[in-house]
């Protein structure tokens, strides 16, 4: 028995639709995937680079030492217990000053709060740093009356 065309025409239409859909999928899908997605994993590879442009705030002690060798020399000479400390721990973030020394002038830190940050006596503080009960120790006097921050022994 000969089959009529109308018996299977609907299958061709269906198959055609499927093929069309597949082709559309293949062409449209990349438009929704950001560049670099999947290069290293399920994320945009460019995202790794994005964060690298974040500006520096802390220059690091090595940068400070390039100009402020007088402090370094003094600390080495007196074997100061502060000679390995980060300058910016007390002086604050100064990458801007390191980049443009004359344009950005740092402000001297308030000395007593800076000292108290590490040297106030409190339970749980390991005895790595000398600790005093500041109120009894100084009676309200600024730490700098007796101590020099860069070489913190007595005068």
């Amino acid at each position: 028995m000969k089959r009529e065309r109308s018996d299977w025409a609907h299958l061709i239409r269906l198959g055609g639709l499927l093929v069309l859909g597949l082709v559309a999928f293949v062409f449209i899908r990349p438009l929704f995937i950001p560049e670099g997605f999947g290069v290293y994993g399920h994320y945009r590879a460019g995202a790794i680079l994005d964060g690298r442009d974040h500006p520096l705030e802390y220059a690091g002690r090595a940068d400070c030492e390039m100009c402020h060798s007088d402090v370094v020399d003094l600390q080495e000479e007196r074997q100061s217990s502060h000679r390995r400390l980060s300058c910016e721990g007390c002086h604050g973030p100064l990458a801007a000053h390191a980049a443009a020394p004359d344009d950005v002038r740092p402000v001297l830190p308030d000395i007593t709060p800076a000292c108290v940050t590490c040297h106030e006596k409190s339970a749980g503080r390991p005895p790595l740093v000398p600790q005093v009960e500041v109120r009894d120790h100084s009676g309200g006097e600024a730490c700098s009356s007796c101590h020099v921050a860069h070489t913190p022994g007595m005068f």
Binding site: G51, R52, D53, H54, P55, L56, E57, Y58, G60, R61, R84, L85, S86, E88, G89, P93, C118, P126, L128, V129
Partner: peptide
Amino acid sequence: CTLCYHRIVKGLTTACCEVCPTG
């Protein structure tokens, strides 16, 4: 925390490690 990714790729340490007075 990004582990200061912008710093470590430049060979610097993180800001927290930089200022830590006791290591």
